[in-house]
Amino acid sequence: MEKDFEIVDHTADVGIIAYGADISQAFANTARALFSLITELDDVAEILHRDIELIAPDQESLLVEWLNELICLFDTENIVFKRFDITKLNNSQLKARSYGEKIDSSKHRLKTGVKAATYHMLKVDKGDGCKVQVLFDI
């Protein structure tokens, strides 16, 4: 796969499409896309990590809830993440460890604030290589 994710135009908000050899990788790339909207990933070091465990009724909900957990961590702990290890992912459960660091205004240029991941236009496609699409409220 050449690219991990791409940004999709939307009038008011921002959509992303993320790719992966498997669904875990596609989920990880969606999170990378999220933080690439917030700051430059190249400027983020892997200094700390946070573990997230989620249970949701289906995989689409898992994706939205996972991204919203990360947005919440950004807001409450001021952490920007760049690498995501998804250790468990099925239709109802997700376990992941996310690596990043606290925001440092001397090295991180903050770009766009993301309010939440939405269900609008949400797609989880597990066909030939995995592809997921999410729209964020900006």
């Binding site: 009724p57 939205v64 919203n68 919440c72 409450t76 939440a116 269900y119």
Partner: peptide, 17 residues
């Protein structure tokens, strides 16, 4: 701010059920 964002996030999930 983030307060309202989280209230909406929580209830979209809850009302989805």
């Amino acid at each position: 701010r983030g307060f309202g964002h989280q209230v909406c996030t929580d209830y979209v999930a809850l009302l989805g059920e």
